[in-house]
Design a protein around this nucleic acid. Sequence first.
DNA 1: ATCGTCGATATGTCTGACATATTAACGACG
DNA 2: CGTCGTTAATATGTCAGACATATCGACGAT
Lengths: 240, 240
Amino acid sequence: MKDETAPRLRVQRVQAAYVQIANQLREQIIGGALATGTRLPSEAELCTLFGVSRSTVREALRVLASQQLIDTTRGVAGGSFVAAPDAGTVAENLGGTLGLLVNANNLSVDNLIEARLMIEPPAARLAAERAGETGLASLRRTMEETAQLDPDTGFTLHWDFHTTLVSITGNPLLQLMCQPVNAVLRSRLHRERVAPHRWAEIDADHERIYDAVSAGDGETAERLTHEHLTALRPLYERMA
Amino acid sequence: MKDETAPRLRVQRVQAAYVQIANQLREQIIGGALATGTRLPSEAELCTLFGVSRSTVREALRVLASQQLIDTTRGVAGGSFVAAPDAGTVAENLGGTLGLLVNANNLSVDNLIEARLMIEPPAARLAAERAGETGLASLRRTMEETAQLDPDTGFTLHWDFHTTLVSITGNPLLQLMCQPVNAVLRSRLHRERVAPHRWAEIDADHERIYDAVSAGDGETAERLTHEHLTALRPLYERMA
DNA sequence: ATCGTCGATATGTCTGACATATTAACGACG
DNA sequence: CGTCGTTAATATGTCAGACATATCGACGAT
């Protein structure tokens, strides 16, 4: 019997006050009206500004804080400050959310792999074209560390190669996209099921990619990365 | 002079109660202990469960709600329900965050354009290979609507073409990546500065891309999309 | 059987108070 | 004169209780 009530028009339902306040403040922040680091008015001031109680203001602030838009500290010099988000924390958050999407079956591991296969190879090409001394050094370091450590500890370090490779592009957005995807995939890979000799192959692949990058050969770096990821694909696919 | 205060050790600072509560509940939700759709205890019950006041519980709930982990409704049948996060809302949030990163100069418009240029063309190829009747229809619709409306209203619709194109790939993750990037770019494009004849060119480009997609010609779709985005590039680059 | 009303229950908001963290200013002491 | 505790001011964090309001099931009148 919702046919009577639901379908007609969308009534202009009044939103909760804290939602409206959060939206207004967010608009100011995102729109650039408030530079990063700027201090918002104190909770008491916001109360009088918006004409609401402190509870309402605080709930609005919690919303913004959990979206990384503000940082709140206590004390006399405290308050809510427009956050200076860095790509790293954003990437972490995004990773958690992606994991949730996968859990809810709104996103499949295949989707992740496909996107990875689409982005990382071109990123490797860019990295090869732009790699400087320091970038190459840190990339080499990830391989050396991986080689030294035992497979168990070195496990998570294998991903550092990919993360570092993408960071060499100098484009934080690419990092922002690759890192969460890799984080989810890493958590979805049961390492016990990976035969030991696989790790040697992976290391060899990394080595060849590194060579291409350090030689500035973008074409080869892209191709090798694509092959590498394709070879890795079967390690994930059996999962739901 | 932070050398004195900062570097020593990370003290085990007691977190605010609402943060702890939010974390515990989040763990339950993400860990799968609470299936999507499940109803959390009422605020009053959570108060007694955690031994805190309602304000504290509510602030924790606001945190979770703004992370799309729960949906809250009023009334006798209301409460907080574990949400089924969808890629769309995640993309919206991400768009806001990206805008902030750009404001903070941790991300440049060039970075956005580069990533877009890297992802959308291959996505167009995928779309061409996978497009079905309904997908093609909705893609055609975005073009028709754009043509009918005056430039002002049609302004935002131009982006719908790209959004729809990516959605045809059937990979929500690609949508999740492209949509926020396009949202930020859209807000950073001053339409007054775009000469009117540009819109005609853009429409023509879209038309050709559509033809390639509907013909299932992924190769051409990818190339045309790349050219299209490259042609668009100058419209953004003059901005800080 | 249908429609309107009422009541139960949940979230939304307000008020006012106290707790606590943080820092700046001050003053005592070496 | 500089250094180190102490204090006071101010901001957020938490609590308690109350009332407002949305929502829906159930009851009752028509």
